[in-house]
């Protein structure tokens, strides 16, 4: 019945112990993985909520940033834009990734980092006119950057967790639906085979016992026969002797008589 869905093993007690150990391991692993999947899902949900929340605020913050930039442009004229576009040198704002551990899954987290790189040419933007407005716009975009780095962290976490949850669930399912039943079937198979062997052994022993009993009886019968024969022989010889006595007429004196006291002997007439 479970011929396909079990391991190919010899049905021995040692193998049974090994398989039982493996089954135990599979069950424990399943429980652990399930826990891990739960932890990941919990985190995943939290991240999802946070993403939705941030994305909504992002709209507002970006609108604000754009608005302040427009004001800066209005105040400073086209020259501000060119000053900015030409002023690109080394990045002042970078992100640094650090790892966070959730149930054994490493989730990268981004931190906004000011490298302190001087941006001398960028500083010149709005020097002629609208300096304050440009500063405002810079502040607004920096604020947006902060939010965006958070969002980037969340999004990476989302993607990483998504992947991790999928693999974990795959493992949980594999253990639940494939490995564990297979091992259980193997245990069942081995137990069945062992039972079968035991029954065979029992039957064999019975047979042996019966044979032994038969042998003993046979021997006893033979002994009895011999004893009976002996008895018969004895009786026969006794009878023979009695007959002898009777024949010799020496009633009770035993066979042969006395050869020396001849006068008591009857004359033998031929």
């Amino acid at each position: 019945m479970s011929n396909q869905n079990r391991l190919q093993v010899a049905p021995t007690v040692t193998q049974l112990a090994v398989i039982k150990l493996r089954l135990q391991g599979a069950v424990r692993g399943h429980a652990l993985l399930k826990k891990k999947a739960d932890a990941l899902t919990l985190r995943h949900r939290a991240v999802l909520k946070a993403i939705v929340e941030r994305k909504t605020t992002l709209g507002e913050i970006m609108r604000e940033a754009h608005f302040s930039w427009t004001r800066a442009r209005h105040a400073g004229g086209e020259s501000v834009k060119h000053a900015v576009l030409d002023g690109v040198e080394r990045a002042k704002v970078r992100v640094r990734a650090s790892e966070e551990n959730v149930a054994g899954v490493k989730i990268p987290k981004f931190f906004l980092r000011d490298t302190g790189a001087e941006q001398r040419r960028m500083e010149l933007a709005g020097l002629g006119r609208g300096g304050a407005r440009v500063r405002e716009a810079r502040g607004a975009f920096e604020k947006a950057m902060t939010l965006l780095s958070e969002l980037a962290s969340l999004q990476t976490a989302f993607v990483t967790l998504d992947e991790a949850i999928r693999t974990t669930n795959r493992r949980v399912n594999a253990l639940e639906n494939y490995v564990t039943p297979r091992l259980q079937n193997t245990v069942k198979y081995i137990l069945g085979e062992l039972d079968e062997l035991e029954r065979e052994e029992f039957f064999r022993l019975k047979k042996v016992q019966a044979k032994k009993k038969r042998d003993v009886e046979q021997a006893e019968r033979e002994v009895a026969e011999i004893v009976a024969d002996d008895e018969a022989l004895r009786i026969a010889s006794e009878e023979l002797r009695a007959y002898d006595d009777v024949v010799r007429g020496e009633g009770g004196r035993g066979a042969g008589g006395n050869l020396i006291e001849t006068e008591q002997d009857e004359d033998l007439l031929f």
Binding site: A91, R94, M122
Partner: peptide
């Protein structure tokens, strides 16, 4: 020093972020 932030966008958006210092 950390990794870069890349921007693809229209002129105003890109300029804004460059102003914030992401340009490299």
């Amino acid at each position: 020093d950390g990794d870069l932030v890349a921007v693809i966008g229209d002129e105003d958006t890109v300029t804004g972020f460059l102003l914030a210092g992401v340009g490299h």
